[in-house]
């Protein structure tokens, strides 16, 4: 049970396009794992294959020691998920969405506490579609935390948040991590990854090009800043220059 998430040789393609090839990694209890890579590198596909919302072609996956497809009913009592796109009903209010989400779980946290913690307690009666981008993002993190999960999946954690809100979210996640929560996240912000992640995996066109700690990633690369090292791994710098 030490490894909360185990992924072995995960592969998935869409027709001819190989989205993820032979990916393996483990996430230990109480750690934050970052799945990095450019848009289209296979991050979301990986998350969906792990969660079982997309079928994988080969490989094995386990979350909290069980197979997410076979054991979904018990497993998802303890797993929180925030998807990249928003999925909510047209005219639903913040409080209603939280209330319905709470009703799905046996040991749901009081969502009002979470709304307060994330600074949107006054928005309970607001329509979700009328929230600003940052407020929405905070709400979706809250929805992932409502089950009182042992592990959360956060796809593009702080996209759309302003500098202050990002720092607040980091702080909250660090606290939760301190309490034993395991987190798998994807992010495009390298400062965030450095602050939060114990281990990372960098994907390039569905292949793992680095797997280890942020420090190791810098050490192996010719650079001394993580963002530059990341770009070196993903070759984004080169391709950007080509575009000019």
């Amino acid at each position: 049970m030490h490894d909360i998430i185990k992924v072995e040789n995960l592969s998935k393609s869409y027709g001819q396009l190989k989205a993820v090839t032979n990916l393996s990694f483990n996430v230990k209890k109480g750690t934050v794992f970052g799945l990095l890579g450019a848009n289209g590198a296979g991050k979301s596909t990986t998350i969906e294959c792990i969660l079982g919302t997309k079928p994988m072609e080969s490989g094995t996956v386990s979350i909290l020691g069980s197979n997410p497809k076979a054991n979904r009913k018990e497993l998802f009592q303890k797993v929180g998920v925030q998807f990249q796109e928003a999925n909510y009903q047209e005219n639903i209010r913040v409080g209603e969405l939280c209330e319905v989400t709470s009703s799905l779980y046996k040991n749901a946290t009081d969502y009002r506490t979470l709304l307060k913690k994330f600074g949107i307690a006054d928005k309970s009666k607001t329509l979700v579609k009328e929230l600003s981008g940052g407020q929405k993002q905070r709400l979706f993190i809250i929805l992932a935390l409502i089950p009182n999960p042992e592990v959360v999946f956060l796809d593009e954690l702080t996209t759309g948040l302003d500098a202050r809100a990002r720092r607040d979210v980091w702080q909250i996640l660090k606290e939760l991590k301190g309490q034993g929560l395991t987190i798998l996240l994807t992010s495009h912000f390298m400062d965030e990854v450095e602050k939060l992640c114990d281990e990372i995996c960098i994907l390039k066109k569905g292949n793992s090009v680095f797997y280890g700690t942020v420090e190791d990633a810098i050490a192996v690369s010719p650079y001394d800043k993580f963002e530059e090292a990341y770009l070196w791994y993903t070759d984004e710098e080169v391709s950007e220059n080509e575009n000019i």
Binding site: G52, T53, R72, K73, E74, F76, V81, N87
Partner: peptide
């Protein structure tokens, strides 16, 4: 069809219900 295209049905797949 609306709940499907908004991925609301999909969200339930990662919950206990």
């Amino acid at each position: 069809s609306d709940y499907r295209s908004k991925h609301i049905l999909k969200r339930f797949k990662v919950t206990p219900v």
